[in-house]
Design a protein around this nucleic acid. Sequence first.
RNA 1: AGGGAUGUAGCGCAGUCCGGUAGCGCACCUGGUUUGGGACCAGGGGGUCGCAGGUUCGAAUCCUGUCAUCCCUACCA
Length: 493
Amino acid sequence: MSDFITKRAEDINQWYNDLVIKGELADYSSVRGCMVIKPYGYALWENMRDALDKMIKDTGHVNAYFPLFVPKSLFEAEEKNAEGFAKECAVVTHYRLKNDPDNKGKLIVDPEAKLEEELVVRPTSEAVIWNTYKTWIQSYRDLPLLINQWANVVRWEMRTKLFLRTAEFLWQEGHTAHATQAEAIEETKKMLGVYADFAENWLAIPVYQGVKSESERFAGAVDTYTIEGLMQDGKALQCGTSHFLGQNFAKAFDVKYQTTEGKDEYVWATSWGVSTRLIGALLMTHSDDKGIVMPPKVAPHQVVFVPFLHEKKPEQNQILIDKCNEFVTQFKAKGIRCKIDTDLMKRPGFKFAEHEMKGIPVRIVFGPRDLEENVAEVARRDNLSKESISQDKLVNHVENLLTEIQANIYNRAKEYRNTNTRECTDYEDFKSKIAEGGFVITHWDGTAETEEKIKEETKATIRCIPYDYEQTAGKCIYSGKETKHRVLFARAH
RNA sequence: AGGGAUGUAGCGCAGUCCGGUAGCGCACCUGGUUUGGGACCAGGGGGUCGCAGGUUCGAAUCCUGUCAUCCCUACCA
């Protein structure tokens, strides 16, 4: 904890790991591919979750909870979905252990306790949920059905990375059922919009919204909509997806409703999710060589007070701590999350470095000198600047500063993203731009073959067909065919 | 799954080639001096050397097996 963060220029992957481990967001665990989310990291997740949960509820959805286990027969009902996830499923085959007769104190799986039917640990919940919806939906009056759940899922990934790709992760998954195709598509886009809003206005991560190409589509979806961010290592990161599922799941699970005319119709479906990966996105978007930079809106602590305490001067310490508490009360009244660092053993310089590493947006320092002059030293994490602020202006100043920091890191990230999004019409130029990192916007002939070839030759994938760029006609960068698709390519995490 | 590497104190490592009974830095504990940008001095605690066999008077070190982790290729919120 006391040593430094690896510099980005030195080793950007190690830098990222250092942010997570030394920033005390998470730890490696004794379970392969799984991490422990530590209190500081979990507090961040709670803030993110609470904000997004409200947005989900404000758009008419309610929360529920479905089981962790999916009987294999249900899991395989929607073929494409099952096929897509089959390779990365954890499966429960037994329900009991027993003492090992040959090895005292050890346990073995009881071969007598084999399950009649295996249970798949959910990699996503469409199967259980649609099997339930079948019984909940009878009439057009039951629609739309707008449900979200906060849950954990397991995907047995070959290679994992803290927050960005872990075998178990936390997320929310919305699953909705609608009477018409148009309404379901509208829902899909609406929720993508909610995600984009959340990413940009809460996490300060600028994202491109768009539609996935067929090969990148969610298994079982008709269309996958995505928000894509650009990380500081030049790689794109899928930050959230919203799927229009058509009638695939309705047909697989036989979910029909009766129309006003008394006809039976299959319902139309959507599903959408974001995960703890967003923590990784946030870290990789804003942080610097001194550590994490937290967006104020979701930071576990928005302000940290550092009174200059001397072990030998208890009376002076008390005055400084009282002063801090006075302000903490005022900040709390404004809904600002703060803490006081009253550790007697650590020196100020150490504390400064530690709070910077953990990304606390604003640091307020009170020393005897400041008290005499009736000021406080206010330091901001985003640009590391410091200024002396008169105490009577402190609360308003900091309140505004938090807003300013939130805006500043968003603008900074957006500028980086924009300057690293480049147009391209020549394949050789494309290859060199992709190698340099960032998004490349270019024409693509719409075929999976071309997409595959480009991936093989450059490691770049189509991140999306973006909303933000007009779909003008042009020549495919690879095949030279006339096409109307303009797509965003990038190397991705 | 194929190739490469590593398992020694909480963390990071040395010692292994050439066998002799456990060492360094950080962290931790105690005392003192310090304190406006990562303090210093002195003392101290902590290890079945991944696991299981074998060779040997003696194994972290040699042999055999085994397990785990990491990196490089295919999948991925």
